[in-house]
Write a protein that binds this DNA or RNA. Structure first.
Length: 206
DNA sequence: AGGATGATTCTCT
DNA sequence: GAGAATCATCCTT
């Protein structure tokens, strides 16, 4: 089955740079997670573009008991076993969407969960999509950032290298990268695979 | 067919 | 900080 495509943007901010190349994602999830910090996630949503700097991300690797991929492919986690550089978007607690970027080698289930962004563009669209939220809470949390950007399961398995939804290297990293335990996981809780930009006030679970 | 679980969020107190 | 909401997904009968 062909991977779905996001709507192509009609206007790309000229100084944000090209989407990160596939080679960026074809590395271990921990390396990708740490390196994603400071880059910009963009979604050219039909109801308004939004963008934010990645300030928090979690790696889910091979042989990782906390990973959805642990135990092999299923219909839900199929994207994790696909090509690096695609999205893996899943429904959490029946109501929220969470977005990952697929990493590593095809056939191996790996991904990086995007946990928090610092909004930098499209704030009005984000506020529309998250009525009642404080600005600093718009993208603070994995389910919140997808809601703010208009990202849903329709983007599962979508290529992040072609535009529509993508990550680019617009921002220079500010602050150092902290490694912390992942949130909400029971097994594999000892692995420090949650990466945060130090100094950000916009991390999830303040 | 049924039950347990969960990479969460919101609303209280 | 605790508890509810809420349901897709997966595993066990």
């Amino acid at each position: 089955m062909e991977a779905p495509r996001a709507v192509k943007p009609t206007l790309v901010p000229p100084d944000w740079g090209e989407p990160l190349p596939r080679s960026f994602y074809e590395r271990p999830a921990t390396a990708v997670a740490a390196d994603l910090l400071g880059h910009v996630l963009v979604h050219a949503a039909p109801d308004g573009m939004g963008a934010g700097v990645v300030v928090e991300a979690e790696a889910y690797g091979a042989d990782d008991p906390a990973s959805h991929a642990f135990g092999g492919p299923t219909p839900r986690n199929a994207a994790m076993f696909g090509r690096a550089g695609r999205a893996y978007v899943y429904r959490s607690y029946g109501v929220h969407w969470c977005m990952n970027v697929v990493t590593g080698n095809e056939g191996v289930g790996e991904a990086v969960l995007l946990r928090a962004l610092e909004p930098i563009a499209g704030l009005e669209a984000m506020r529309r999509r998250r009525p009642g939220a404080l600005d600093r809470d718009l993208c603070r949390g994995p389910g919140r950032l997808t809601a703010a950007l208009g990202i849903t399961g329709a983007l599962d398995r979508c290529e992040l290298t072609e535009g529509g939804v993508w990550i680019c290297g617009a921002h220079v990293r500010t602050g150092e990268v902290l490694a912390r335990p992942r949130i909400g996981v029971t097994r594999g809780a000892d692995r420090l695979w949650r990466f945060c930009l130090s100094g950000s006030r916009l991390l999830s679970r303040r």
